[in-house]
């Protein structure tokens, strides 16, 4: 474990807590893409298949359980919870996310670290996570103004993988046989997708103005 990865995990956790706070405090999920949340639940479920087979550390196991439970809770909330469900922008959240699932799975079958069930699903989860934010960014552009908590949620979500990039650079230089190029390349794509959001988020922070993405 290194400071970059720990900071990355904490930033990821903060993003989830901010989203839970938004949904709980405002009893609304307006501006949040259910499709992105479903993709994230799938990412965690397929990435942590080794939850019961490979014990890395208490921290690792606890965080995996937290990520799986919170992502499922958010999807459940947005689908089942009467009050929250009504605020869901159903007509705006129309990204065909099953295409992302199909594409990432096809890529995972072709490009993986080892042609085993677990490794194919691990690679699938890595590719899917890179593009999972797309429905959310599309929804953001369509819904125009963004409430603060949603903006912060997306900011922390993007920042966590940027910290992981630093973690991989650090591990590359400090560990003899470290090569996670699938996660690294995918992480660069993932962070790149946030580039324009980060730009407008920075502008809104600098000008102390509301976060506006150009339609």
């Amino acid at each position: 474990m290194n400071i970059f990865r720990f900071a990355g995990d904490m930033t990821h956790l903060i993003s989830i807590l901010v989203l839970l706070l938004k949904i709980y405090a405002t009893k609304s999920c307006s501006g949040i893409s259910l499709k992105t949340q479903e993709l994230y639940a799938l990412v965690f479920l397929t990435r942590y298949l080794d939850l019961f087979t490979d014990f890395i550390s208490v921290y690792n196991t606890v965080m995996k359980l937290v990520f799986i439970a919170s992502s499922l809770a958010i999807v459940w909330c947005m689908r089942m919870h009467g009050l929250v469900k009504r605020s869901y922008d159903k007509e705006l959240d129309t990204f065909r996310h099953y295409l992302l699932v199909a594409g990432c799975f096809a890529l995972a079958v072709l490009v993986n670290e080892k042609f085993t069930f677990q490794e194919i699903f691990w690679a699938f989860s890595i590719y899917l996570e890179a593009v999972a934010i797309l429905p959310q960014l599309v929804l953001l552009q369509r819904s125009g103004n963004v409430d603060n908590l949603t903006g912060q949620y997306i900011f922390f979500l993007g920042a966590y993988r940027a910290l992981y990039l630093l973690n991989w650079i650090y591990r590359y230089f400090t560990e003899v046989r470290f090569s996670r190029w699938i996660a690294c390349v995918s992480g660069i794509v993932q962070t790149g997708l946030y580039a324009d959001f980060f730009y407008y988020y920075f502008l809104s922070w600098k000008n102390n103005a509301k976060l506006q993405l150009p339609a």
Binding site: H12, D54, I56, K114, E119, W122, N167, A183
Partner: peptide, 10 residues
């Protein structure tokens, strides 16, 4: 052969 060690990252 190239043994894939367990993924230690989240």
């Amino acid at each position: 052969s190239h043994v894939v060690e367990a993924h230690d990252e989240l």
